[in-house]
Design a protein around this nucleic acid. Structure first.
Length: 231
DNA sequence: TTAAACGGTCACTTTACATCA
DNA sequence: GATGATGTAAAGTGACCGTTT
């Protein structure tokens, strides 16, 4: 199995709308329920009858079996299979167990549910896409909140620098007597400054701490930290 | 070692169907 | 009840990647 496929933290159709959509062999699907369940030994009898009932209900809505029209309507339009709740539940259970299927699992699941392996494959494909979409939404929200927090923190730090500069100008003596900000610590070996509860400072450190107040970016805290302390 | 064939997956898209106003 | 808008899920398509030959 491919690594990226397994990494669930998780393409383009160029088909022309003018071109007639082909109805592949893949679409000439599902046999009637009674035929399907001949090869469904893994499913309890009660479940089978439920699925059969659901199938029949759907068939009734469609007004004909797919075997007759090869999965397509009289006018050639493709009929769309809606999976029953039971089928979906089984697929969901299986998905929770393993988000990707090997050919054997796919075939077994298809047989159990009375579907074609291709349908099982497509279901898992779409399910992975839905999972990824949800995860992306969650990630997006998280990053948004991070961005807001960092923006606010940056604003606060810039304000603090301005105040300190002003203080330095007005009363240098008082400024020199100030104890350093308690949130800043200096590494004894490399003399780099880090803010143990401040992610933006750490980020600035990683970048070499070259940002200045003038360019509006995150301020380098080194000048503050190396301020000589009076005993 | 390189390249073609092949299979699996993904991203994007189309389409059928369900639901709701 | 008919109808159009909208959402959702099944399925089609091409690209990409890893494996095999």
């Amino acid at each position: 199995m491919m690594e990226r496929a397994e990494d669930l933290r998780l393409s383009l159709s160029l088909s022309s709308p003018l071109a007639p959509r082909t109805h592949h062999v893949a679409m000439l699907f599902h046999a009637p329920p009674e035929k399907r369940f001949l090869e469904m030994p893994l499913l309890p009898a009660a479940k089978r009858s439920e699925i059969v009932a659901a199938d029949e209900e759907r068939a009734g809505l469609r007004g004909g079996s797919d075997e007759e029209d090869g999965g397509c309507g009289i006018d050639g339009s493709r009929k769309k299979l809606r999976l029953s709740k039971d089928q979906s539940a089984v697929l969901e259970d299986s998905f929770r167990e393993h988000p990707t299927l090997n050919p054997r699992q796919k075939a077994a699941l298809a047989q159990q549910l009375g579907l074609r392996p291709r349908q099982v494959e497509v279901w898992f494909q779409n399910r992975r896409a839905r999972t990824k979409l949800k995860q992306t939404e969650v990630d997006c929200e998280f990053l948004k909140r991070c961005c807001e927090t960092l923006t606010e923190e940056n604003r606060r730090l810039q304000k603090e620098v301005q105040e300190l500069r002003a203080l330095k100008l007005v009363s240098p003596h008082l400024y020199m007597n100030m104890s350093p900000p308690t949130t800043l610590t200096m590494c004894p070996s490399c003399e780099r400054v880090s803010n143990t509860n401040n992610s933006s400072s750490a980020a600035a450190d990683r970048r070499g701490g070259s940002d200045t107040a003038a360019d509006g970016g995150i301020l380098c805290h080194r000048p503050i930290a190396v301020r000589p302390q009076q005993s």
